Structures are given as C-alpha cells and as structure tokens.
Amino acid sequence: MQASNKTVIKSMKILKLFLTHAKLSFNDMMEHSGIPKTSLHRMIRSLEEMGFLTKDEDGYYSLGLLFLQFGQLVADRLDIRTIARPFMKELRDDVEEAVHLIVKDGNEAMYIEKLDTPQPVRLYTSIGRRSPLYAGDSRIILAYLPKEEQEAYIETAELKPVGMGTITDKRMLRQLLDEARENGYAVTRSELEDYTASVSAPIFNGQNQVAAAISIAGIEARYREERLPELIVKVKETSMKISKKLGYSF
C-alpha cells in the first residue's frame, strides 16, 4: 500500500512539472523531479498508456488530451453550480425543502450541490454523494439520456434495492422512464432512503442535452398528493430557468 502511495506521489510530481512547462524531454523531467532514471522511465510509460502524457516526434512530452476532457468536465460542473445556486436558493426558500443539483458521473449520479431545508427533520444527503442512476431523484437524468445509451445502461445494470421503494424490475423501470420523459418530471418515494420523497426535473445545456437534474427532496409525510402539483410546477420552472442560462433553446 505504501509503495503504491509513493508511486502515485511521484507520478503527481511528474505531472505537476507541466504546470510551468508546456513540453519536457525525458532528461528535463529527470533533472526537475530528481526521480531515478529507471523509475522515471517506468512511470512515464504508464502515464503515456493511460493518456496522461503524450510524446511528439521530437521526443518531447506534454500533457495528454485526457486532461482536456477532465478539464472541460470540471469547468462544466463548476459553471452549472455557479449558475444554478441562486435559482436553487430561491426554490429552497419558497418550498422550504432540501434542493439538490445532480449530474451523471459514469454509470452513477453525483450530488454536486445541496441547499438544506429549514425544517428540523432533514435528509442525510451531502455534496459528493453518489447514487445509482435508476433510483430516486437521479432517475430523471437516465430518462433523458439518448435511447441507445439508456437501454445499454438498463441491460447491464443490476437493479439492487437501496430503499424499500427502489425499482428493481427492468420492465417497470422502462415504463417509469418513459413517463418521466413524457411528463418532464419524476416523483419518487423511499427509493434511496425509507420514508423520503423527491420531485425532480432535468436541466439541459446549450447542445439541448441533459446536463444535470434538480430535485426537491424531503420527508415523505410532507409530500402528500395534494401538494405535489405545486412542487412539480416549481421544480420544472426552476429547471427551465437554469437551462436557459446554460444556453438551452426550446
């Protein structure tokens, strides 16, 4: 474990050299890092194979295109958080429930922003929390993925129960996804935590693709049928306000 940690630290030391240098030769990296030649050669080869470094025809190394993908992903998420937060605050203050901002991260969903409820009983959710795409308020993202991508996910996913209301039947999941896409929102109950409920809506970017989701979530007792129409209208209005700011045209 310690050896692995040392390798990671040394690899980061190599990559950090490119914060101040656009290109470096092998000898440059050896001089600046102080890492022995054999170890450096092995680490550079691994970084090349993973796409973190690339080597040009003159033998100089630079950061790989993988960093552009990571950089764009981070920038997009930071932009969404910055843009969404004032609208989330307005929604939270209006309905007095927790409001979440959720994005797709690989085959999971991740909560990247949360504004908590002023109510004394609160949900156990936090920024950085992950959840399966098929369950709870993140399911609205799955509903708006391209059909091929959505079906590929469903085919390979193991629908494990998380809360007592988690959907574990793929036929039922497909039906709920179709309904959510047709209606523009999703209502879930006890799917990620027992006795909780959520109302969620999709957020779209300038390419008219689903970029995130916004949800109102709380204790199920506060989500009675007579209150749902109001919450649905408000979460959909908020999702459209954020989508407009992201360049979505509809």
Rank of each mutant, 00 (worst) to 15 (best):
V99P: 06
L231D: 02
K37H: 10
L192I: 15
D116L: 08
L246E: 09
T238E: 03
D169R: 09
M164P: 00
R42F: 11
A213R: 07
L19M: 13
G71Q: 10
V95E: 07
P161G: 01
I44R: 12
A211Q: 12
I167D: 00
G165D: 02
E158H: 12
V235C: 06
I44G: 07
K13A: 07
N107W: 10
E179R: 13
L246I: 07
D116C: 06
T117K: 10
A186L: 15
D76Y: 01
F26Y: 15
M110I: 15
A213F: 08
N208C: 01
M50G: 03
A143F: 03
Q207D: 14
P146F: 06
E220P: 00
K16Y: 11
D178S: 14
R171G: 15
R81T: 14
A152F: 03
R130D: 02
A201C: 09
T166G: 00
K10F: 00
G206V: 10
G218S: 05
K37A: 11
E237H: 06
Q72K: 14
A22P: 03
V162H: 11
V8K: 13
L177F: 03
N208P: 00
L47P: 05
A135G: 04
M172V: 13
S200N: 02
Y195I: 00
Y153S: 13
L176N: 13
S46E: 10
V162E: 02
R222D: 13
Q2W: 01
G184H: 03
K170T: 08
D93Q: 11
D105H: 12
Y248G: 02
R92M: 15
A212F: 05
L123E: 05
E230C: 00
I102Q: 09
Q175L: 14
R122N: 13
V199M: 08
S11F: 01
T238S: 11
G71R: 07
I112W: 10
L101V: 06
D94Y: 06
T188F: 02
V235I: 14
D58V: 02
I242R: 11
R222I: 02
A212L: 06
E149D: 14
R174H: 14
I80A: 03
G71W: 05
V95T: 07
Y144K: 06
E226T: 04
M88F: 09
L68K: 13
T188R: 04
F18R: 10
S46K: 13
I14T: 04
L177H: 08
I203A: 12
I35W: 09
T238W: 03
V99L: 05
I9E: 13
I80Y: 02
R81K: 15
K114Q: 14
N5L: 14
S243R: 05
G71T: 04
L19Y: 11
